[in-house]
Design a protein around this nucleic acid. Structure first.
Lengths: 113, 113
DNA sequence: GCCATTACTTTGTGTCACTATGTAGTCATG
DNA sequence: CATGACTACATAGTGACACAAAGTAATGGC
């Protein structure tokens, strides 16, 4: 029942970018990615597992990221560390350009008023 | 089959905002709105009628805009001029805040690199 | 009456974020 | 070696919505 209204749709087309960008500086596993995004956006984006994992699977299926299972080093179930592939890095740059262009195009609507 | 890839999803959650913002400075009819958005974004957004009109109907159903049919002044079929309601103006401000917050939260991912 | 042009409509489709729930691995405690 | 707590990952079902494509209607010029 999507309580968000606007924010849910704003995440669309941005989520993949956020995930790819999170892996830019080294592999991370699922729940850490959520934390990473939360940290870097000052808590603005706080999606749940049901949003994250399907997205990760999509990216993996597209060959943009690749998973490697490692046992947890603090106890608990094993973790799937995702890292960017070469194609993934290219796609990340492409999406960053798209995001910049989008922000740029939107600027006239955001200044003043 | 959505040839866009990224851009289509980026329009999501932004389209309603663009439409409301287009009506901020006076009523416009459908096709003029498309032109207005194209002009103000340097051609970045160029959606078609199949995207526009369902969105307008949604906004109308929510009571954010209101239509008034006027005969064309240059020949051709009559036009439906949409204008913002009071609720629509409030919603526009709300969405502008959301857009600003979104852009702000995304900034760390766009600078450098 | 045609035809082009303008404006609005509609149908069907695929994608995807979201909620909610389920499964499984590890550890501590008794 | 149960049981509970915690962590991590998985998935089913749902609704929203941008999009392409094709259709309808109104006017004016010829």
């Amino acid at each position: 029942m999507q309580s968000n209204g606007v924010e849910g749709n704003l995440l669309r087309g941005t989520l993949d970018f956020l995930l790819l960008a999170s892996l830019e500086h080294g592999p991370l596993y699922g729940l850490r990615i959520i934390q990473d995004v939360q940290n870097r956006t000052g808590g603005h984006f706080n999606f749940k597992e049901g949003t994250l994992y399907p997205a990760l699977h999509r990216l993996e299926k597209r060959g943009l990221i690749h998973a490697e299972i490692r046992p947890s080093d603090v106890g608990g179930p094993p973790r799937k560390y995702y890292h960017l592939t070469d194609t993934g890095l290219t796609e990340l740059e492409r999406q960053r350009d798209a995001q910049r262009a989008h922000a740029q195009a939107l600027r006239p609507y955001l200044e003043f008023a």
